[in-house]
Design a protein around this nucleic acid. Structure first.
Length: 298
DNA sequence: CACGATGTTCCCTG
DNA sequence: CCAGGGAACATCGT
């Protein structure tokens, strides 16, 4: 499920239910594989994390691409100054965040439950490709996993020039595979990559190096941003009210609604869509619409 | 019963 | 060391 906008949707869901609230207790299911790396970064692993979260106040939250984080302030400590706890959640393939009643009982594949006054915040992940990270530090410090992040695709630092550099550097890879690289396009996943290439009328198997001309890169850059903005607005309710769930209405003018089942038709041409594996992932595209760009200048 | 799923990481090769 | 490709991870639904 989770790409840029779905991650933002789930972050807001927890944040709107828990902002500035006190965590009365935290319950981690240590057998969930989402904690498999935790002990390396946080001595004591899931159990120590749950203990540290008890009594903490939810002070902030955000996302870095598909990585979401919540920051908690801890009660004053006599020793040291490490009064801030960062909780990082990656949703993997099937993770989701829920808000449940206070008396909610743990269900299969729930990984983490935060008990607040009047409600429970639940992180649920059946396939367990998700990941929980925790870092404790002084106020104003950030965890190592927030250092040296690539520019968000909607930030001013995500420039056409940067995009061209990426296309040249990975010139022998299919552009579809390059778009999935989180180092360059944080938050872009399989459906967004297909949507971007469809809107840009670029066949997904095109080698990235073929797209590095100024004109083509500019077009691709515009579509990357457009898909990110549209997805955030429609799915995460950017700038407005949070939609009640992820089953929001996606416009039929997007590829999104037509891509899943075999036999879908391209909304632009009404010709059949094709599904094939490109860049290691199932890719949906419209051969009648997505044609190789003409070789252009620089 | 087999296959595929909106992700990441590790390992191998050139 | 770099770039690219493929497998593995675990579970569920069609």
């Amino acid at each position: 499920m989770p790409e840029l906008a779905e991650v933002e949707f789930f972050r807001r869901r927890w944040w709107e239910a828990g902002a500035r609230g006190r965590v009365r207790a935290a319950e981690a299911q240590p057998r969930s594989l989402v904690f498999r790396h935790l002990a390396r970064e946080f001595p004591g692993g899931a159990a120590a994390m749950a203990k540290s979260l008890a009594g903490a106040r939810l002070a902030g939250s955000g996302t870095d691409g598909k990585q979401m984080w919540f920051v908690f302030s801890l009660k004053k400590l006599r020793k040291g100054n490490r009064s801030t706890l960062w909780l990082g959640i990656h949703l993997g393939m099937t993770g989701e965040m829920r808000v449940e009643p206070a008396d909610y009982s743990v269900r299969k594949h729930d990984a983490l439950i935060l008990r607040l006054a009047g409600r429970s915040l639940v992180f649920h992940d059946p396939r367990q490709f998700g990941r929980v990270r925790v870092w404790r530090g002084a106020k104003g410090e950030a965890p190592p996993w927030r250092n040296n992040l690539p520019p968000e695709i909607l930030s001013p630092a995500f420039t056409v020039g940067r995009l061209r550099g990426v296309l040249v550097r990975h010139g022998r890879a299919p552009v579809k595979a390059v778009l999935l690289n989180q180092k360059y396009f944080p938050g872009v996943g399989n459906w967004m990559a297909d949507e971007i290439l469809w809107r840009a009328a670029i066949p997904p198997a095109t080698l990235a190096g073929q797209l590095a001309s100024a004109a083509t890169a500019k077009k691709l850059h515009a579509k990357i941003r457009q898909v990110a903005r549209d997805a955030l607005r429609v799915i995460a309710g950017a700038g407005g009210k949070l939609p009640p769930d992820l089953n929001v209405h996606i416009p039929d003018a997007w590829l999104f609604n037509h891509r899943w089942a075999d036999g879908g038709l391209c909304p632009k041409t009404q010709k059949p869509l094709r599904r094939e594996e490109i860049g290691g992932r199932t890719t949906c595209w419209s051969p009648a619409w997505q044609r190789r760009p003409k070789p252009g200048g620089t």
